[in-house]
Design a protein around this nucleic acid. Structure first.
Lengths: 272, 272
DNA sequence: GAATAAATGTCGTAA
DNA sequence: TTACGACGTTTATTC
């Protein structure tokens, strides 16, 4: 039996281009051929496999879900992660971050891809009813990836410029570990009171408030009885319930709109 | 300048297959053509676009990130969401959940895809250094998707209608494997000579010519000495250098403008 | 491995 | 549209 996929010609690549199409499967194939194609490519180093077509997806694990017949894009990455995309959204319809086992086989005349994961025990099953195309690519060479602007960077900036939060504030510790977790900034205000600062890069929610409250209590327990400890939640925004709870707990909110950048922008002119 | 891709025919594969590939672009294209390809497909109703190749990605918005040159898979969904995948993890390396604006243009000789989002103000910029493949799919309302218009379909049609290439041509084999790769169509002409047909969905380039030449040589070696083997490059268009090389190698070019659709049972109202 | 918190979280829904 | 909470959250880090 001749498989209906072909090895791509070598003329597809150039010296700089290390990503190459490895193999392609046409629309013409039997379930057996598709299963063979998948099994030959999945879990191999650097090979990303893609199947597009009418499929059915089942998930069983932390939850359970079934996707009826639909046209989905299935991507299997070299690390064994799998994701099934529909036409909308960044998030896949179904996925499996890491799999212990991936295999395809023919069941009842159709190619079924099974992705298993232990701990937690999860299962994704994709039945390919009508495959439109199956492709495998080599994804070689990965460039460096640099992310900036996370909460840690916010902490970095505010640690050096605590006056943004409040004039006279002096930072004593960053990432101070207490029983309930790590305090972003531990400081002292101009009147000598201890201050616990909780940073949020996004809009602060109730969970941030209770987090701050836990830290404040931890500090109060560590200090001599009667010591006054302030709690400041610093974020660009706060939700209404969070603000109410904050006030009820006698904690404070400090709006952080913009931060002086400590690193060069990617391309500052883009937004001018 | 003729774009190197083709609009797919109106024929449908099956009633169950709702998504189909609309257009395909091969590996050969200029940055201008790639930009045009993207602009024609992106943000259109029901069209999912994919670009695979050596790229560079920048993000600026809630945070900022830069990804150096690497082989990435870019997916643009019909809802305007965009995601750039590397070889690991379910999560994309860069993404944009929903965009207000997506456009591609040539900057400094390279195709740059810009995805803008307001509220929050965010920007993703992808520079395609070397594209391996660009694909576009139609997605129907019901979420099915099926592909059409690929080279495989072209092969399908021409295998059944070899007279389009040349009257009296008889197809002996499809996807005939030889040492140098897979021959799209292996046939015999009206005078009994063997014919190797290489198909290109897009404008044929020199690499297609050398590919065809390799196949012809492989067949010549396999046949008794002195056997005459013709090589035909069938494509909608051919570049000037490719045509010159073709003539120098005594190979032939056959322009394929339109293909008769393969009629299959389907309700034409789906795509109006 | 369990627990904890960050994330460019994403996504859906009610006001 | 905006606010708000849920998510198979995922992912990274710490204990």
């Amino acid at each position: 039996m001749t498989p209906s996929w072909q090895t791509a010609g070598t003329d597809l690549c150039s010296i700089r281009n290390l990503l190459r199409m490895l193999r392609t499967q046409s629309t013409e194939h039997t379930p057996e051929e598709l299963a063979q194609f998948i099994n030959e490519h999945v879990h191999q180093q650097n090979i990303l496999t893609q199947i597009i077509g009418l499929s059915e997806v089942q998930y069983h694990g932390r939850a359970a879900s079934t996707a009826d017949q639909g046209s989905y894009l299935t991507i299997i990455k070299p690390d064994g992660s799998i994701q099934i995309h529909k036409s909308k959204g960044v998030k896949p319809m179904n996925w499996q971050p890491k799999t212990n086992e991936i295999y395809a086989r023919v069941e009842n005349g159709e190619c079924v891809l099974t992705a298993l994961r232990h701990r937690p025990e999860e299962l994704v099953r994709i039945t390919f009813l009508e495959t439109v195309i199956a492709q495998a690519f080599i994804l070689a060479e990965e460039g460096g990836f640099i992310l900036q602007g996370s909460e840690s960077e916010m902490q970095e900036v505010l640690a050096h410029h605590p006056e943004i939060i409040e004039p006279g504030l002096i930072v004593l510790e960053r990432e101070l570990m207490v029983s309930s977790g790590g305090i972003d900034l531990y400081a002292r205000d101009s009147t000598g009171r201890y201050v616990v600062v909780e940073l949020k890069r996004a809009r602060a929610t109730q969970s941030a408030v209770s987090q701050l409250a836990r830290y404040v209590r931890s500090i109060q327990l560590a200090l001599p009885a009667g010591s006054e400890v302030r709690g400041i939640l610093a974020a660009p925004d706060i939700t209404k319930p969070a603000l109410l709870e904050l006030q009820a707990r006698k904690l404070e909110f400090k709006e952080i709109k913009a931060l002086p950048s400590i690193k060069k922008d990617v391309s500052p002119t883009l937004f001018e």
